[in-house]
Amino acid sequence: SAVVMEEGSPGEVPVLVEPPGLEDVEAALGMDRRTDAYSRSSSVSSQEEKSLHAEELVGRGIPIERVVSSEGGRPSVDLSFQPSQPLSKSSSSPELQTLQDILGDPGDKADVGRLSPEVKARSQSGTLDGESAAWSASGEDSRGQPEGPLPSSSPRSPSGLRPRGYTISDSAPSRRGKRVERDALKSRATASNAEKVPGINPSFVFLQLYHSPFFGDESNKPILLPNESQSFERSVQLLDQIPSYDTHKIAVLYVGEGQSNSELAILSNEHGSYRYTEFLTGLGRLIELKDCQPDKVYLGGLDVCGEDGQFTYCWHDDIMQAVFHIATLMPTKDVDKHRCDKKRHLGNDFVSIVYNDSGEDFKLGTIKGQFNFVHVIVTPLDYECNLVSLQCRKDMEGLVDTSVAKIVSDRNLPFVARQMALHANMASQVHHSRSNPTDIYPSKWIARLRHIKRLRQRICEEAAYSNPSLPLVHPPSHSKAPAQTPAEPTPGYEVGQRKRLISSVEDFTEFV
């Protein structure tokens, strides 16, 4: 048969007729292969192709491409040299491709048809291009793949890379869960390890502090508590009631339409708007009261037996805890006409967050109470924005700035309102402590230090009264110190430094 060459192609190359033996071998191979691939376009007849790359030819070592076609129900084999250009295909004639002069020997084609199974398996396991790669995943090629499931790999992101949580363990979102698992493993320790309690022994800490320079003076030496005195035992138990972190309780009120001037209507609300609910979820963490331990979680007086509701929101960081007394989460009882059960919590909070959804101005004093010092007013606006402002009593104007209003988005509203309420509550605590000038409020841990110092002074006084020969370590507060001759004046800087060093040991009130 003659071949018409394309323009620009090399000279004529004689194409030899395939021997009958080659056709029989390739026909047997075509019957084993699956003929249901995917359909081509209507211009080209339905056909199945599979590209198999052999590394070497037997005796020649030339890479070839073998295409199996099922045109007219008769499979045909096409061998081509890759750099050459194939002729145009037609549905009426068999596929013809040019070969190099080196394939002119018909014996070479017979060798190609009689490829060993080793070469076929190696060509099938190679990388296939384009559409033949999808075909190689079918059941027909499963014989050339190794048996057994593939090893499982770690989760992959859409980009093909490992997620960040699997790369950096410290930033993994499941870090707290692993800590819980470690605690569970520790709890399952053997009885021999049960006595080993991690941490620092208080006796060891005391020993280090006792021999430090801070205890060089007799006034700073630790003293032993009497065991037989019940009054001192009660004082030590009272110390446990003062937490070592700051605590805040903040009221949250929802004002519906037409309720801006009605205290009873505001306290009777059992739910609010959708934006109000989203605002609550951002204030803190939802907790169930019956599962809380009052000595570990500050509840601000809420009952854990269901008297004040089942849930509330709280927030904490390293040095403070805040609980929100939310009116809509507290039960509304029919027998309580004046809502006294709610007001006994909300009316005693220094700061209230008022979500004013009424469309009218909310005035300070609508919720009557002796300790309502500051109101954080949240007014929802259009386009997911809110107006946040402050209202306070006249005696609080020096501590709280009420002249600045803020426009905040719904997303950042819980954070801004919480921070403003916490700052206002700190100012309210300082303002409330002014009624007792001898006990200015600095912080909870300073209050613990003052309680310890008062307890020490009482013990020293009782020891001096029981044994008059012992001198008083600290003179009583009601006694007057003996007159001392004025010492020589020293520079102001040295006096300030000495006073600062003494105050650092005794108390921190002056620095606050």
Rank of each mutant, 00 (worst) to 15 (best):
385 C>A: 07
368 K>M: 10
254 Y>Q: 01
421 A>I: 01
411 R>V: 09
469 S>L: 07
472 L>V: 12
322 A>S: 05
372 N>E: 05
217 D>F: 15
338 H>I: 07
489 P>E: 14
299 L>V: 12
296 K>G: 10
413 L>H: 00
468 P>F: 10
420 M>H: 04
342 K>D: 05
334 D>P: 13
462 E>A: 06
253 L>V: 08
410 D>P: 00
368 K>Y: 06
324 F>P: 02
431 H>E: 12
496 G>K: 08
220 N>F: 13
314 C>K: 08
312 T>Q: 10
444 K>T: 06
310 Q>D: 08
428 S>R: 02
502 I>V: 11
353 I>S: 00
279 F>N: 00
225 L>A: 15
311 F>C: 06
222 P>A: 13
509 T>V: 05
467 N>Q: 13
489 P>W: 10
236 V>W: 07
319 I>W: 14
379 T>H: 04
412 N>M: 05
437 P>S: 07
421 A>M: 00
266 I>R: 03
411 R>Q: 12
290 K>Q: 10
367 I>L: 12
339 R>V: 14
247 T>V: 08
272 G>A: 03
280 L>S: 02
401 D>W: 02
407 I>P: 03
375 H>A: 15
331 P>M: 04
367 I>A: 03
497 Q>S: 11
422 L>V: 10
246 D>F: 06
354 V>L: 03
267 L>D: 03
415 F>W: 03
407 I>A: 03
487 A>Y: 09
347 G>H: 15
236 V>F: 10
352 S>T: 14
327 A>D: 03
235 S>N: 13
225 L>F: 11
248 H>P: 04
383 Y>E: 05
481 A>N: 10
483 A>S: 09
458 R>S: 15
341 D>T: 10
217 D>T: 12
219 S>M: 10
220 N>Q: 14
430 V>K: 01
377 I>S: 03
285 R>F: 14
221 K>W: 14
498 R>Q: 13
345 H>E: 08
269 N>K: 02
285 R>D: 15
378 V>C: 10
455 L>H: 09
388 V>P: 00
353 I>F: 01
250 I>N: 01
343 K>R: 15
247 T>N: 05
349 D>R: 04
407 I>E: 05
311 F>E: 06
272 G>P: 03
450 R>T: 08
509 T>E: 08
235 S>C: 15
297 V>R: 15
256 G>H: 02
439 D>W: 07
355 Y>I: 01
326 I>P: 05
406 K>E: 05
374 V>W: 02
466 S>V: 12
278 E>W: 03
384 E>K: 06
410 D>V: 00
380 P>E: 00
426 M>S: 01
509 T>L: 06
488 E>F: 08
343 K>N: 07
263 E>C: 02
347 G>R: 15
359 G>W: 02
501 L>R: 11
327 A>R: 03
258 G>D: 04
222 P>I: 05
275 R>P: 00
